[in-house]
Amino acid sequence: MSESQQSLRAFVFLGLSVDGRIARPDGDLEWLTSRGAAAGDAGFTPFVESIDAVVMGRRTYEAIASYDDWPYLDRPIHVISTTLAADADSRITVHRSAEAAIDALQRDGRWRVYVDGGETVRWFLAAKLIDELTLSQVPVLIGDGPSLFGSLGGDVDLEHVRTTVLDGGMVQTTYRVLDGPTPRSSQ
């Protein structure tokens, strides 16, 4: 397939609490890293090896920026932010909009993209760019914090691909996205 015939394919691989939270209100992820450790890699490394680049929002970047072990191997990292300085971190490229990030990814021939972070995932779903969601539920209720899903502008139909119970009680489910949001009929 030639470059002009390819289109961006976006994938989600996220951990979340059973109540659908992706972080504590202050951005803390200790609940995920400590409990998720029992599950080991959970397939994350093979997943990252299968993608060409990563795109995330500023809050997700700030939550992981200080990690000693950068989890994205050598993949280019694109961060969407209107406030982060362009030279904030030599490991990332900052874009002022999701559209600008997509343009850069396509221009660079990055067709398989890992989308990370709640707002970014919702934007890509609304734009009908997500192909697959792999969600790993950590056996904890944290009660408050950002949710992975909020308003999507309608229903997003999914097809179940597989569910695996990992060590530590983490349940990982993969869904194929059949289409983007379908507006609900008003009755």
Rank of each mutant, 00 (worst) to 15 (best):
V48E: 04
D41N: 03
D52P: 07
A42Y: 08
D28H: 05
A53Q: 08
F44M: 13
D26H: 02
S50F: 15
G36K: 02
G40S: 10
T45Y: 06
I51L: 11
A42R: 09
G36M: 03
A37V: 04
R24V: 02
R24S: 12
F47H: 02
A23H: 00
A37H: 08
S34K: 15
L32M: 15
V48C: 05
E30T: 14
D28Y: 04
I22K: 00
D26M: 04
D28E: 11
S50K: 07
S34T: 15
W31Q: 05
P25F: 04
I51T: 15
P25L: 08
T45V: 15
D28S: 13
V48L: 10
L32R: 01
A37R: 12
G27T: 09
T33L: 15
G36F: 01
F44V: 11
I22M: 00
A39I: 05
D52G: 15
L29P: 00
E30S: 14
D28K: 01
R35H: 11
P46K: 04
E30K: 12
T33E: 14
F47M: 04
I22Q: 00
D26V: 08
D52N: 07
D26K: 04
T33V: 09
D41P: 00
G43R: 09
L32Q: 02
L29S: 01
S50V: 11
T33M: 14
A37I: 02
G27E: 04
A38Q: 11
A53I: 15
A23E: 01
A39Y: 01
L32D: 02
E49S: 13
T45R: 15
D28C: 05
G27N: 05
G27K: 02
P25I: 10
F44I: 11
A38M: 10
G27M: 03
I22E: 01
I22G: 00
L32I: 07
G36A: 06
D52F: 10
I22H: 00
T33C: 07
F47W: 06
R24Y: 05
E30L: 12
G43L: 11
R24L: 14
G43W: 08
I22V: 14
S50L: 11
R24G: 03
R24K: 10
P46V: 07
T45K: 14
S34Y: 08
F47Y: 13
F47T: 04
D26Y: 10
I51Q: 10
S50P: 06
G36C: 07
G40K: 04
G40F: 06
S34N: 14
A42P: 03
A53S: 15
A37C: 06
A23N: 02
R24P: 03
R35S: 13
S50H: 13
I51A: 10
A53P: 08
A23K: 00
E30M: 10
P25K: 03
E49I: 01
D52R: 14
A39D: 03
A37E: 12
G27R: 01
G40I: 06
T33G: 12
A39V: 09
E30I: 07
T45A: 15
S34Q: 15
G43C: 07
G43Q: 07
